[in-house]
Structures are given as C-alpha cells and as structure tokens.
Simulated assay, not measured.
Amino acid sequence: MTRGGARAASGPAPDPNALRRNRPSDKAGWRTLPTEGRPGDPPQWPLTTVSDREWELWADLWESPQAVMWDELGQTLEVALAVRTLAEAELPDARIDIKKMVRPYLDSLGLTVQGMLRNRWKIAPATEQDAGGTELRPAAPLRPGPRNRLKVVRDDEGT
C-alpha cells in the first residue's frame, strides 16, 4: 500500500469561483463547454463488436457537452472502454470489481461534478427562448445578495 505524498485526486478539487486567482495551477484556465453538447454523429466504435446497450450509451454520451473535449483530446478509446465497463456493471450479476471501475472512468471523463472540477471544465449556463423565439436571460439566483435585501426607510417628515 502506498504511503504519504500527493496523489492525482488528493485534496479539494479546483474551484472556478475562488477568490484568489493568482495560483500557478490556474494558468491553464477553465474551459467552458457548450450547453447544447457536441454536434454530429458519434465516432466509429473503436472496440470489437458493440452490443445494443453499448451503442445506446455511446451515442448518448457523444451528445454531451464533455464530448466536445473528448473529441478535441482524441479520447475515443477511453470513452469506449468506459461505455463497455458501464454496460457490464449494469448487469444484475456484475462483479463488484467491474462496478468499482465505473466511478474512476466517469471522473476522468468529466461526467461527475468532481471530474468536471478536476478537468477545469464548466458548462455554459443555459438560456431559454420564449414563444416568439427571442432569447431570454438565464434565471436569477434563488437567493438575493445582501444589497438586494436592504431597503431605504424614510420617516414621514422626509429627513
């Protein structure tokens, strides 16, 4: 068993909203992924024959916002291995070691919150369109800021 020292996923994940932004590790910056995901058809399946469930997962994952980065980074094989492992882990009689492999795959591909933070990816806020086709602004935060909670109180004499 390993002892001491830093590990790849040790410590808290990076925070895009941190107050201190002059860290050397922040030089790479954050990548904003499009909400609508990756356009087009999924790439060709790189492994041996594909099952129906694997193809369903494959096609679905390649429509996600993270797929833009997988395409850019050439991670077709990694995604295929994750899909095959996930499809096998879904089976009722799946071995526990197969089920344990799914989470690291999802993290490394940015399909979990922690994976998104570690990869320094964020998804652009979704905007809605009204019936007339005009774009609406993103929804306001649920909790107002401190300035919005203050109000001016005047006495009757105007002083």
Rank of each mutant, 00 (worst) to 15 (best):
R3Y: 12
G5I: 12
G5C: 11
A6N: 12
R7V: 02
R7K: 07
A8K: 05
S10L: 09
P12V: 15
A13T: 02
A13H: 11
N17D: 06
N22K: 04
P24E: 14
P24A: 14
P24Y: 14
S25Y: 04
S25L: 03
S25A: 10
D26Q: 15
D26Y: 09
D26S: 10
A28L: 13
T32G: 05
T32H: 11
P34K: 12
P34M: 12
G37N: 09
G37A: 08
R38L: 08
P39S: 07
P39W: 11
P39F: 09
G40L: 08
D41H: 02
P42D: 14
P43H: 00
P43T: 04
Q44T: 15
Q44S: 13
W45Q: 10
P46Q: 01
T48G: 05
T49Y: 05
T49P: 00
V50C: 13
R53E: 05
R53K: 07
R53V: 09
W55L: 12
W55C: 10
L57D: 06
W58S: 00
A59M: 01
A59Y: 02
L61I: 01
L61M: 04
S64I: 01
S64Y: 07
Q66G: 04
Q66M: 07
A67H: 11
V68H: 10
M69R: 04
D71P: 05
D71I: 13
G74Q: 06
G74Y: 12
Q75T: 06
T76F: 00
A80F: 02
A80M: 07
R84F: 10
A87C: 06
A87S: 15
E88Y: 01
E88M: 03
E88Q: 02
E88K: 01
A89V: 00
L91K: 00
L91N: 04
L91W: 01
P92R: 13
P92N: 12
D93K: 14
A94P: 03
R95L: 04
R95C: 00
R95S: 06
D97S: 01
D97P: 00
D97L: 01
K100A: 01
K100E: 01
K100M: 00
R103F: 06
P104M: 00
Y105K: 02
L106E: 03
L106C: 05
L106S: 03
L106F: 05
D107Q: 10
L109E: 01
L111V: 05
T112W: 07
V113G: 05
Q114R: 04
G115R: 00
L117H: 00
R118W: 13
R120F: 09
K122D: 05
K122H: 05
T127E: 14
E128S: 08
E128R: 04
E128T: 02
Q129T: 11
Q129N: 07
Q129I: 07
Q129W: 01
D130A: 04
A131W: 02
A131L: 00
G132D: 13
G132S: 14
G133M: 11
E135K: 02
E135M: 11
E135W: 09
L136Q: 08
A139K: 15
A139F: 15
A140N: 11
P141R: 06
L142C: 03
G145I: 11
R147M: 04
N148K: 04
R149E: 15
K151W: 01
V152A: 09
V153K: 10
V153C: 11
R154N: 09
E157T: 14
G158L: 15
T159S: 02
